[in-house]
Amino acid sequence: MSDALLQVRGIGISFGGLKAVQDFSLSLPRGGLYGLIGPNGAGKTTAFNLLTGVYQAQSGTVELDGRRIERLKPHEIAHAGLSRTFQNIRLFGELSVLDNVMLACHCRGRHTLLGTVLRLSRFVRQEAAMRRRATSLLELFGLARLADEQAKSLPYGDQRRLEICRALATEPKVLLLDEPAAGMNPSEKKSLAASIRDIRDRFAMTILLIEHDMGLVMDICEQITVLDYGVTIAQGPPRQVQQDPRVIEAYLGEPAKA
């Protein structure tokens, strides 16, 4: 038994003949900020989908804070303390920004039909607590003034930050970020990097980050895992990974074969 908060051992999945992720392992310590990189189609998002239960792993185990989660359903995994953002933004577009975050608070609450319909004290107080919590999270991300807007009407960068905000609202132990900086301009990226660091420090959060922007990854991540064709080709601190010949080969677009 290791002291890692998220311990992944040899998970994998294939779609038909395509081995999208093979033998993926990772040991993420409490408070760690790790990166997951690789060329397009390398299997990074698929790895997230395996961890969060969108796909069932065909092999391997996932342990979150000592608890096996690889057979749980997605909502159970969220309850267990693993939350994520989506590469292709998946906000609740018709709902307000505030409601998006409040919905994510839902999983830490207790709900009864009777309490809801009769507006019993427990319900009213919990609803107020959710609103307070959601509002302070929005403030943290500079989104509070947009609280009443429909999520789909937000500019792109704000939608990405709202995704992070929503994921945090579930009170996760580990946060998975799937290309949070995609489509942002350099100055937005810079402030995003600062907020990711800030989240880690302030909430003592443990973070796994997928990102294409090498500068950003190398800058903020302590350890990096590199995927190519579903296979882990390198794992280590940024400097070491950067100089790994197999990584360079994969990124230079040679038809590399692991």
């Binding site: 359903k73 919905l103 994510a104």
Partner: peptide
């Protein structure tokens, strides 16, 4: 309402 908007996201946010 969230399930009508996006089922995958709703599940990921802990909605049964």
């Amino acid at each position: 309402l969230s399930s009508r908007e996006d089922e995958i996201a709703a599940r990921a946010m802990g909605v049964n």
